[in-house]
């Protein structure tokens, strides 16, 4: 759509070196769709949560570029976009009693971090990746699990890490391990007879009768049987 018909609405970008004309407000992915070149960057959800469309970007005005999701980044004049696909990799199997020692056992790379912060800059979800890696070293797993809540496992933090520290995979290991460490709350058993009588009422009859009973159940919390 045209945000303001009174203005010149062409934005020139290049993707993988090829020039494209785009409209202001368009994401890189949608600019490529409009140009009939959808295959130039692989796409998954086109909603910023699958991490398939990772790209690196350079700006015309000399601002620092970096990594982005092409489905989230809107086009800018002179922007140069390069596909930067990162293949998914599984993390190590989780444990139900995570400790820093156990993490180091499966990820001996943990202490290789040189605090360059590339991972934090690369993260399209604004996760404080490097700080979280430092927390992993100290075993602050509650906070680590929190930090990686919105991680989409695009793999960019891993791809840009010169020291191969594998942040998002450790994040997954910590999250899954923490998840395993919480017990399930007890399930309160239901009174059998009442349940059986109510089920019989709900399942029997015509669809109209069922709908009527469903409405009654919602209102009264039961069927009086």
């Amino acid at each position: 759509m045209n945000p303001d018909p009174s203005k010149d609405n062409t934005v020139n970008i290049t993707v993988g070196g090829k020039p494209y004309k785009a409209s202001p407000g368009q994401t890189i992915v949608h600019a490529l769709w409009a140009a009939g070149q959808a295959q130039a960057i692989s796409t998954g959800c086109a909603g910023g949560v699958c991490g398939a469309c990772t790209v690196s970007i350079r700006f015309a005005d000399g601002r620092k570029g970096g990594t982005e999701l092409a489905c989230r980044k809107t086009v800018e004049e002179g922007m140069q976009v390069y596909p930067f696909p990162v293949d998914p990799m599984p993390s190590k199997p989780p444990v139900s009693d995570p400790t820093p020692e156990k993490l180091r056992e499966v990820y001996p790379t943990l202490d290789r971090c040189t605090k360059c912060e590339s991972c934090t800059h690369a993260c399209p979800m604004d996760i404080p990746v490097m700080n979280s890696v430092l927390r992993m070293q100290k075993g602050e797993f509650e906070q680590v699990a929190e930090d990686f809540t919105t991680c989409i496992h695009c793999g960019l933090c891993r791809a840009v890490c010169e020291d191969k520290v594998l942040p998002h995979q450790m994040g997954m290991w910590v999250r899954r391990s923490m998840g395993l460490s919480y017990p399930n709350p007890p399930v309160v058993p239901e009174p059998d007879q009442k349940a059986a009588a109510e089920w019989a009422h709900l399942m029997e009859g015509t669809p109209e009768e069922r709908l009527e009973r469903a409405r009654q159940f919602r209102k009264e919390g039961g069927l009086g049987v």
């Binding site: 020139n12 070196g17 090829k18 690196s56 970007i57 350079r58 002179g78 590339s118 690369a122």
Partner: peptide, 13 residues
């Protein structure tokens, strides 16, 4: 395309 075709340094951030 305009400018350089060398992919940017992903560590530039």
């Amino acid at each position: 395309g305009g400018g350089s075709f060398e992919p940017p340094d992903p560590f530039s951030g």
